[in-house]
Design a protein around this nucleic acid. Sequence first.
DNA 1: GTTAGATTCTAATTAGCGTTAGAATTAGTA
DNA 2: TACTAATTCTAACGCTAATTAGAATCTAAC
Lengths: 203, 203
Amino acid sequence: MNQKVTQIKPVLKKAKTRKLLLDKAAQMFSRQGYQSTSLKEIAAAADMKAGSLYYHFASKEALMVEVLDQSIQFISDTVAEEIEKLPDDYSFEMGLRAFMRGHLTAILEHPDYTTTTIRNNGQIPKAVQISAHKKREHYEQQWRNLMTQGKTENVIREELDEQLFRLMVLGCLNWSSVWYKPNAATIDDLVKQYADIFLNGCR
Amino acid sequence: MNQKVTQIKPVLKKAKTRKLLLDKAAQMFSRQGYQSTSLKEIAAAADMKAGSLYYHFASKEALMVEVLDQSIQFISDTVAEEIEKLPDDYSFEMGLRAFMRGHLTAILEHPDYTTTTIRNNGQIPKAVQISAHKKREHYEQQWRNLMTQGKTENVIREELDEQLFRLMVLGCLNWSSVWYKPNAATIDDLVKQYADIFLNGCR
DNA sequence: GTTAGATTCTAATTAGCGTTAGAATTAGTA
DNA sequence: TACTAATTCTAACGCTAATTAGAATCTAAC
């Protein structure tokens, strides 16, 4: 009955193995996809047996939900960090560069979590898809707002569809996780080249 | 012993059901992914039972190999068609627009085959991946050559890495298969906006 | 109408999956 | 040391997958 008093370190240990399992799961989901990854493999990567996972997670689906949640959360947080470095009245150009740097940094520096979001399009259960989509909505709205700003600042020229432009930019960024190798180019180089081209091109 | 004489229509019929099975397989692979699609589902879509597939294909892997081959072949052919419309000494700008139109048309008008190539990154068996990669190489080389032309024509400006530019363009194009809905925008609109931005941006 | 070949189906095999219940183990507390 | 709760393992369950061998059916020529 005195659980509240006796358990301090055990809680930390439990959280630690949970984290470990999530990390391994993210790693394998992002590389092999949801369906191609077995609980046995995930457990083995964490020096455990498949059955033991169920002490920490209710099901494979639940595991995937958490990975996806953390994934989108991580991208969103990284972008927010970049935005906070800007003055309050930042211009569209500054905003776009910050968004791009945040998004790319998240995707390329922590690919295990983030590419899970990107690569598992059709193969995850419906319920998981819906849950992930809701989380993603808020983040996408921030991008939409940025594009509106670009339109009112007249940096995105009149005849150009700013939502198409948004999809274009995000497509570029997301796809780089397919081919990016850390030794080829730095993320900052990428951001600069991408942003220069897009800003030049949309005027 | 006189098979050559007696079988004419039967051969056609066999080819027809093979084609049907390939089409259905491509459809389901592109929507659900390789691992999430069962032979039972593919067979059912062609009004057959799973076991009967083995009269036409040696295995599920073999089926996927053919789908991927046709997929990349189709993109390559569609681009070639667009190029043939150009004069022999076409400029980089004309070439880029033609490449983009061909690639996008293939991807968006026949998504069943083409998005199979795009979406099944990690989840297909190693042997299949290698086979697909070889076919893809030749097509990518054509893009590389185009970029070199852009550099020598000085349309891609000096300080810009033309291979990064290539990946950027292809990323945009490929990613559109993720969000594209036929009623939203026509492919020609897309091509125009994309090409304008990229050509403006790379100068 | 019979026969031979082409095509499909049936039913079984084998293997692996996610999941579960209960036993075994570990580690902290008294 | 003994007790207790937390954590992991074992061994099974039910299910579905890919694959296969042989039976069944269909088709077309003689």
